[in-house]
Design a binder for these strands. Structure first.
Lengths: 167, 167
DNA sequence: GAAGATTGATTCTTCAATCTTG
DNA sequence: CAAGATTGAAGAATCAATCTTC
């Protein structure tokens, strides 16, 4: 729907051709890329892309330990989604959970040795996937632009965030 | 994991700093943007972003009718996902389904009047969302770049597609 | 028997409710 | 009672199996 045939309000600012083109391409990317990434990870590693990100984030900490709330932030997920996912990772033996006595009401997730070995085994294939699925079609300038543009949009989102509708 | 501590294979080509930056930002965007888009649509229209796309695609056809397989292509989804979604839209009265007698083994989805009215009512708010969530932080050059880059990646994906692992 | 499509089972996500601790 | 986190139920996506038509 590009023209409001039934409404008659002329106040809508529709997207101009360039914006529309960008939106169409971005929309397709948002549908297709996560699917492809997930499929690759599932085939190569038997885990979801999201689970990989959790383990990857943990592995970058010196003690392979991170608070749940920080981990949620790092993986851009809700605490609830994260908690369910960590439960699954515990079942697989890749992560353990501990209540954090000091601070009181928080928990931490810890990457196990088994989890770390798994990650080390999987990482090279993952990097190859990113390279072939994302980077291989882009030149250096486009890679830089991608970083800038994605960051700008994400910042915008963080700014807008809640209550956009007033409801 | 950036260095293969346990593996010892020096053959992995890790991402260089620019590539890594782009990948980190893109990854975040893939997690956050669909969530935000879905949330907006749910709040403003009581439907998912995916359902909106289905109805939007139908509305662009002269007779508001499209074959299921074409619709799957247009929305970048599997036929299975689409079929489930169309069932939900039928329950809401926004779409009906008919077996396509002529061609034989295909079906079509048709946007109802009710569905069209719904779309007309929702579209302006959706455009505003796209504008505020995506476009508002970008200048004209960046919008053009976004279209190009997203298209390149999507093309790459379509090319790679299956059997990347050989398994 | 192959393409187009649907269905059911399983898995994951989301939402709301709950629990725990300072 | 508020922040951090978990849980269970409901909704949606995926996968494999099935159905239909040529």
């Amino acid at each position: 729907v590009r023209s409001a045939a039934g409404g008659g309000d002329g106040r809508v600012r529709w997207l101009n051709p360039k914006e529309l083109a960008a939106w169409i391409e971005l929309r397709r990317l948002l549908l297709v890329l996560p699917t492809a990434l997930d499929a690759q990870m599932l085939r190569q590693a038997g885990m979801s892309f999201f689970e990989y990100q959790i383990m990857s984030s943990l592995s970058e900490k010196a003690d392979r330990t991170q608070r749940m709330s920080e981990l949620a932030e790092a993986t851009s997920s809700s605490l609830s989604r994260l908690s369910h996912a960590v439960t699954r990772l515990e079942d697989k033996g890749f992560v353990i959970r501990r209540r954090c006595a000091g601070v009181g009401r928080s928990s931490v997730a810890i990457l196990t040795y088994k989890g770390h070995r798994k990650l080390v085994a999987v990482a090279p294939g993952h990097v190859e996937s990113v390279r072939s699925l994302v980077m291989s079609g882009l030149n250096q300038d486009q890679i830089d632009s991608l970083a800038t543009i994605a960051r700008r949009i994400a910042e915008q989102l963080a700014g807008d965030d809640v209550g956009t509708d007033g409801a």
